[in-house]
Design a protein around this nucleic acid. Structure first.
Lengths: 95, 95
DNA sequence: CAAACATATGAGCATTTGTTCATATGTTCA
DNA sequence: TGAACATATGAACAAATGCTCATATGTTTG
């Protein structure tokens, strides 16, 4: 990958982590394997639309994945990078 | 630290990584221990003002530190979290 | 098939963010 | 001390971002 390209992709990835709503969603998925969109909007006390928009961002960044079960769509963490990136961040701010 | 507070601090930290200019500055400091502000603006081909504004952001996030030597101020990475956070990000996008 | 339910999406709006421009602050040296 | 140099900073503006509202899409069930 070209450096120039890498820089933009990296920036885009970190932008995704740079919003407290999205972090809240990820934190929720640390504690409970799966959540439906309604489950998240209920837990986080935000509108279904706001959650759905943010899930789309998280999914495009491949931080969450989804599966459909009937009318519902369940979201879960896509891979372990989410955990490691966030825990590196926590180490930094907790110093 | 309260969860609420942690979320905002984490988001703020990741926001700092979420800009390609700031990443460029950090990358430059990976390759060369120290840079003056002019050195960075020359290397990255950006105005002194733009670099200076971004260095301020990086410094507030404790990602870089500075020391004065005469008229110049030299910036360097503040700690190793910068490297680890960025390398975790790289692992994710390179999959 | 129609109604009910779950989720996605586009437009609009307010807020945030990154750059530029002008200027201020701080340091050295003649 | 004053001129030259290096960096910092504030205001202004354009672009990006996150939420809301209205509505579209997709799925189940009577």
């Amino acid at each position: 990958m070209k450096l120039e390209e890498e820089l933009y992709e990296l920036a885009d990835l970190f932008k995704v982590f740079g919003d407290s709503t999205r972090l809240r969603i990820l934190y929720a998925l640390f504690e409970q394997e799966e959540y439906s969109v309604f489950g998240l909007s209920d837990t986080l006390q935000m509108t279904q639309s706001a959650i759905s928009h943010q899930l789309k961002v998280l999914k495009q960044a491949r931080l969450v994945k989804s599966r459909r079960d009937g009318k519902q769509i369940f979201y879960s963490l896509d891979d372990d990078h989410v955990r490691t990136i966030i825990s590196m961040g926590r180490e930094h701010i907790e110093e």
